[in-house]
């Protein structure tokens, strides 16, 4: 019987992953800031290695309705970016970017309550953020990475996360999340960009970066 896969990373490896997250999210958020023409505050990127059932606790907003924008990045193994915005944030983003009548937050219960134009605005925001994020990663690693078209869901945070947890915790009971928070105070925008590498992909990453690893895979 194999032991369950533990993820133990050295400080150097953690720093490299954090730096990947910093550079990726930096590029992504700069692009969003240019699009909206506003100043966006960014937190330092954090890296968390947690058991699968603790993932919702990281976000600390379990009962709030959030919009999840999920972009899968086809590479050797599973790699994905999930962007999480509070419902209020997404509605203010749509209202900033669209010339149509203003949308009220309370009218939006599910994704079907949004018109096609608003949904495509969300997709486009998702595309811009994940595109710039992966571009920066690709440049840094000298590989080719192109994210797929994003998928959108509006639901409670836990429900959105479950799909991801199910996908990324099949091999191990632990998951790696590289999180960057963004916030715009004056227009009430609050979001998280989260890069989730699968354990297999860490091997690839460390190979590319010429780092030694002992991941017990």
């Amino acid at each position: 019987m194999k032991k369950p896969i533990d993820i133990k990373l050295t400080q150097e490896q953690l720093d490299i992953l954090k730096e990947l997250g910093n550079i990726g999210s930096g590029h992504a958020i700069t692009a969003l800031s240019k699009l909206l023409n506003i100043k966006i505050d960014v937190s330092l990127t954090s890296i968390d290695i947690v058991p699968f059932w603790k993932v919702p606790e990281l976000f600390n907003k379990s009962a709030i309705d959030m919009v999840g924008i999920y972009s899968k990045i086809p590479f050797k193994s599973d790699l994905a970016i999930i962007q999480l915005f509070t419902k209020v944030s997404i509605v203010s983003l749509i209202n900033i970017l669209s010339d149509n009548d203003k949308i009220m937050v309370d009218d939006i219960k599910t994704i079907d309550d949004l018109d096609d134009f608003s949904v495509s605005i969300i997709s486009e925001i998702g595309n811009i953020l994940s595109g710039h994020y992966t571009n920066a990663l690709a440049d840094m690693l000298s590989i080719k990475l192109v994210p797929n078209v994003p998928k959108i869901a509006l639901d409670s945070l836990n429900a959105i996360l479950e799909t991801l947890i199910a996908k990324f915790s099949q091999l191990s009971d632990y998951m790696i999340l590289i999180n960057t928070k963004l916030i715009v105070l004056d227009v009430n925008i609050e979001g998280i960009i989260c890069l989730i590498p699968s354990i297999n992909i860490l091997k690839n990453l460390f190979n590319i970066l010429n780092l030694k690893y002992d991941l017990n895979l």
Partner: peptide, 28 residues
Amino acid sequence: PIGHYAIVNCRNKPNNIYTKISIYGLGS
């Protein structure tokens, strides 16, 4: 939480409080 379970035996309930087990945000 995910991957956890709870068992409740109601025959010896303390102070007449009945346990409620809940999950918020059950997706897949």
